[in-house]
Amino acid sequence: MRGRTAAIAVSGLFAAAVLGGLAARGRRRPPARRTRRDHAARQLDWGAATLAGSVLFDSAIEHYRGSFEHLGMYVPLAVASASMATSLSGGRCPGQLRTGTSVAAMLAGVAGLGFHVYDISKRTGGWSWQNLFYAAPVGAPGALSLAGLIGLAAQQLRSGDWPSDQQSGRALAALASAGILGDVAEVWLLHFRGAFHNPAMYLPVTVPPAASLALAGIAVGAGRPTLQTTRGWLWATAATGLAGVGFHAWGVHRMMGGWRNWSQNLLDGPPLPAPPSYTGLAIAGLASLRMMEDRHD
C-alpha cells in the first residue's frame, strides 16, 4: 500500500517540480543585459536543482526500501521536489517562496541527519561498520541541506546583498568544496562496502577530492592559474557524476537477474540517482569560479 502511495507521490512531486520549473522558464522575459552575478546565480540554480533531484530520487528509492515506515520519510521527497522546482524556475520564483523552500531544505537535511544518527545509535551494534554500511546513511541528508544552501546563495547573488564578487566567489567555493568533501566521504563508505570491486569505483573518490582541494585553495585566496586547474577538476567531477549513472546502470545489469529483476536490483544494486549529486556540486563550484573571473561583463 505504502509502496504504491509512495510511487504516486514521488511521480506527482517530480512532475510538479519539472512542470513548475519549465513553466517559470517559459514565462521568461526577453533577456536584459545579464550580469555576471545573474549568470552565476543561474548556474547555482542548476547546481541546486541537480542536487535536489539526486536527493529526491535517491531518498525515494532508499525510503521505499525502508517501506516508508514513518511519515517523516516522505519529508525529503516533498522538500527536495519543492527545492528542485524553485531552483529550476530560478529568478522567476517569488523571493519568499524561494527562501522558504531553501530554508526548509536546509532544515530537513539537518533533521534527516539527526534521524539517521539516531537510527544508527539505537541499532544493535551501534556505531559499527555494519550499521554505517547498511543502516540509514549518516551523511546523505546533508545533500539536501546543501541544495538549500546553494539555492539560498543563488538568491543572495540575485538580490545583490552580497559584498564583492571576489568575496562571494570565495564563500561559494568554500561551500562547494565542503559539499564535495562530504559527498566523497559517503561515496568512499559505500564503495568500500562494495570492496572497490571495479577499478572505476576509485574514480569518484579521487577526482572530486582533487576538485574539492582546488576549490579550497580558491576559497583561501589562491591565484588565477589555480582557477583554470580548478575549472578542469570541476568539469571532471561533473562528468564523473554523470558517468556514475551509467556505471551504476551497468552495475544493476551485473546483479542477478539484471534489469529484469529491477524490483530487487534497483534497491540492492548501486543507486542510480546518487552520482549526479557530484554534478550538482561541481556546477555550484563552477559558479563560484565565474564570480572570480577577471573579465568584465
Binding site: G3, R65, S67, M256, G257, R260, N261, S263, Q264, L267, D268
Partner: peptide, 15 residues
Amino acid sequence: SPRGYVRTGYDRRDP
C-alpha cells in the same frame, strides 16, 4: 531465484 529478497531485518517484508 533470480529474485531473492531485499528487506531482511526484524518485521520487514518485501512486497
